[in-house]
Design a protein around this nucleic acid. Structure first.
Lengths: 333, 333
DNA sequence: GTGAAAGCGCTAACAC
DNA sequence: GTGTTAGCGCTTTCAC
């Protein structure tokens, strides 16, 4: 492993000059530059980023904390975020909290240890105070920590409103509503508004509440099974992508026809909702925009180029599928 | 940002002593230790990992290169690998190559720059030579670079064999085989053996070849559409999870019944195959074992504890779903 | 234009 | 037992 000193020696110059060539900073005569480049070439020299990092006190790495990459929404989010960060010159370190608050904390600690330049968090296990005491760049997705930490999120209120409108226009009478988002998270808003609108229109809504920090096959399966067993005569479902699909699976296995006997609306609208038959009508979060906004915001903080807004809300979109009857929405129920 | 010198000063000791307390190395009297710990506490001192890294010439980070985390197999793989690496004391940096060889190369370069201690690669865009010239720890999943680079992979030959046996026992006469794995990758083996066995048994197989570096909704959709349009009378399908599901979707939309009119066998067996109705009969890769083996192997290389085997092959498993008739397999066609 | 030297924050070897 | 010192490999003043 050749070092900058070896290069300097071989080229018969000082290390400072080599550094200048490496970074294109300061003046170096064409002749010296050539000598140095030859030496670099000959030695196969590659600068040690660790030393650079120490000097600059940065690593060019952003930590992305999520509950679980295996969840389609988060795998999509990580994918887009990694690409966005890469385009901004940053690398991505992932952390799956998988419901363990200590994991979340440990990754946050990497901020103080200077292992990451900033954090994008979409996990919700750890208390607010653990976040608020950090002084380095943090961007939150969907969780409001107050004015200190910028947040990016979808317009879940509008999303809940759209879901309600779809199921109302589909003339449902008894709706199964599967909830289970972490407390204090903006994504919960859709549930509240949905229930409010339904009750205003006198439509019966029955609930199944999932454990909010489980994303495994069994958990979804169980929620769907409870929904099936506990409630009769359900003719509409509103749930996140996976519980919606699992419930639809069970209902079809029990002989129900979709959309004739059962209307299904999924929230998130990831690719899995287009995979099944029938394709599931969805309220789609714009993960690309969410990711890019998170990435841009955290980089703005890191390079403190400009003030960043406290809240950035990204709109959601209705996608008609075959699991509900075709409707036109106006979004103002 | 307090440094070790501040702590030393405040405690009235030398930096070496502080370092010893920090690392639990060497002798420090209980009294001095207490003083130092108090100073650390008071100053809220946290060691700068960058400086440590420079000294130790390591970062504790492993790069995981995959085609696309959004693909269920890879999101699963990354999830398990991150957890396995974490348990071994390492952090995970992800790179989606998304078919761009330059991205793959750039992440490989981080090895030489000492930004990562090792690499686990499951991407296949870049030429062999780029990998072979590296001197630092690399573990490959499913791609054989020769004896220099240890490889971990599933038993795809057995997997192809199982798929063939299922469809033979389901008495299929015309099988749609959707292929499209990167060239030179072990996962291709399943295709070859599948076709061989089928032809030995006189069963007609028709092919649709997908672009191997595309994992988006449109690509799968297109492949399924081509399969539907181009071939009539297909009564069996063998494909990776997603093309299998998309084809099944289209076939059902066209009025075919599964499994009565069409048998479907998926390869990979991720959760999406259990989500749809009917659940899809699958050949399942053991991602947890694959991930753990990759993680253990790369850490063995990094800490060069022991010689690692060139090839580690993980077995695959048959999972009966509702998309084929129930069969018992014996695996030796 | 270029070399020498200081220093980023830490660890470890070596005195005392 | 503990302080001092010499690096780890780089960047950046500051003389010349």
């Amino acid at each position: 492993m050749a070092s900058i000193r070896d290069v300097a020696q071989k080229a018969g110059v000082g290390v400072g000059t080599v550094s200048r060539v490496l970074n294109g900073s300061g003046y170096v005569s064409a002749e010296t530059k050539k000598k140095i480049e030859d030496a670099i070439e000959e030695l196969g020299y590659i600068p040690n980023e660790l030393a650079r990092n120490l000097f600059r006190n940065r690593t060019g790495i952003v930590g992305v904390i999520i509950p679980d990459v295996e969840h389609p929404f988060f795998s999509n989010f990580v994918r887009q975020t990694e690409v966005a960060l890469y385009n901004l010159g940053y690398k991505t370190m992932v952390c799956n909290t998988i419901g363990i608050s200590n994991r979340e904390k440990e990754y946050l600690d990497m901020l103080e240890r200077n292992m990451v330049d900033g954090i994008i968090t979409a996990a919700h296990t750890l208390e607010d105070t653990e976040y608020l005491k950090r002084k380095k760049p943090i961007v939150s997705m969907d969780r409001d920590f107050g004015p200190q930490i910028p947040m990016v999120g979808s317009d879940h209120i509008y999303g809940g409103r759209l879901a309600a409108e779809i199921l109302l226009k589909n003339k449902c009478h008894k709706i199964l509503h599967i909830t289970g988002v972490a407390p204090d998270v903006a994504a919960n808003d859709r549930h509240a508004i949905f229930e409010t609108i339904m009750s205003e229109h006198g439509v019966e809504v029955v609930d199944v509440v999932m454990e909010w920090n489980r994303f495994d096959h069994e958990a979804y399966w169980e929620a769907a099974r409870i929904g099936m067993r506990k409630y009769d005569g359900v003719d509409g479902v509103f749930a996140a992508d996976q519980p919606a699909l699992y419930y639809m699976h069970l209902a079809m296995a029990a002989g129900k026809r979709v959309p004739e006997d059962l209307k299904v609306v999924a929230y998130d609208g990831m690719d899995i909702t287009k995979l099944c038959y029938p394709e599931v009508t969805s309220i789609c979060q714009n993960t690309q925009f969410l990711s890019e906004t998170c990435a841009n915001t955290v980089v703005d903080l890191i390079e403190n180029r400009k003030r960043v807004p406290h809240k950035q809300i990204i709109s959601v979109e209705f996608r008609q599928g075959g699991s509900t009857l075709p409707v036109k929405l106006n979004g103002n129920l």
